[in-house]
Design a protein around this nucleic acid. Structure first.
Lengths: 146, 146
DNA sequence: CGAATCTCAGGCGAACTGATATGC
DNA sequence: CGCATATCAGTTGGCCTGAGATTC
């Protein structure tokens, strides 16, 4: 194999490793949150809503690194369960203002506690000294793929 | 916030960074492969089949870090397009032996070329010296989440 | 026989595409 | 007008549960 070919193989390996790590983490997070009746992706939305009261769907999309249609569908599900509320934005007629209900905040805090073992497990997988480098590299990847 | 609480916040940050990086990469890969009429996930299966002729669905599941039902559904789609063939395993009556068709291999090689820019972009996002560390850390994460 | 492994079928939540409506 | 925000319909991928088939 050529030297250039080997380099592209590196890219393939990195992509496969990122894929495997994410899928495994996602499965693990789902397992730790299933008892609370919430999926890992729903937990992501709840955590974004918990740190920043009243945000637009557009802001959720950007911060979750997700898609407008996906976020909307998830919010509809969460709204049916009375965990979030969506109201018309006070000044922008196009936007929706989303926030946690009291039940939603309560649920989120319980879920955060339930998922402590998951975060502990994730942290012990990587040496403390390498964590910052890892997060930094992941952010560079996310940035480069935009 | 307590010191322990901050540590768990680190776990959350790592999880969010991993999520954002994967989702962005997946979108980017899809975009580079769309012209070839194949999704990023289908390309993963094709690449696994290209490097190891005749594998069982179970082996594909493990190597793709995926799920048996997911792999099956994807293979059904690929088989409809005559890119892969599934035959009964010669010795194990339970298993299916999967391999690329001639058309499948041809398609894969074209797709590999099409996706060179994607891999280049991925590699340039991370300094050459940090790539091995990154891949290593990601593999540790995947291992710890199993 | 039971236990384990592989496959298949149906259903759900999530990610995306494309098109559409509405307000800025 | 263009642009941004949200919505709706449809496709694919990921996972689960439960079932059937085969092997050990």
């Amino acid at each position: 194999m050529t030297e250039l070919g080997a380099k592209m193989g590196q890219g393939h390996d990195l992509a496969m490793a990122l894929r495997a790590a994410y899928l495994a983490m996602h499965r693990c997070a789902d397992a730790h949150l299933a008892a609370g009746g919430v999926t890992a992706d729903q937990f992501v939305l709840l955590s974004l809503l918990a740190e920043g009261d009243s945000v637009t769907q557009r802001q959720l999309v950007r911060r979750a690194g997700s898609d407008a249609n996906t976020v909307r569908a998830m919010l509809v599900l969460l709204e049916k369960r009375a965990l979030v509320s969506r109201r018309p934005h006070p000044t922008d007629g196009r936007a929706r203002s989303v926030c946690l209900t009291a039940k939603g905040r309560q649920t989120y805090e319980r879920l955060w506690a339930d998922s402590q073992p998951f975060r502990r497990r994730l942290l012990t997988a990587v040496d403390a000294g390498k964590r910052r480098t890892l997060v930094e590299s992941l952010r560079r990847v996310a940035e480069a793929m935009k």
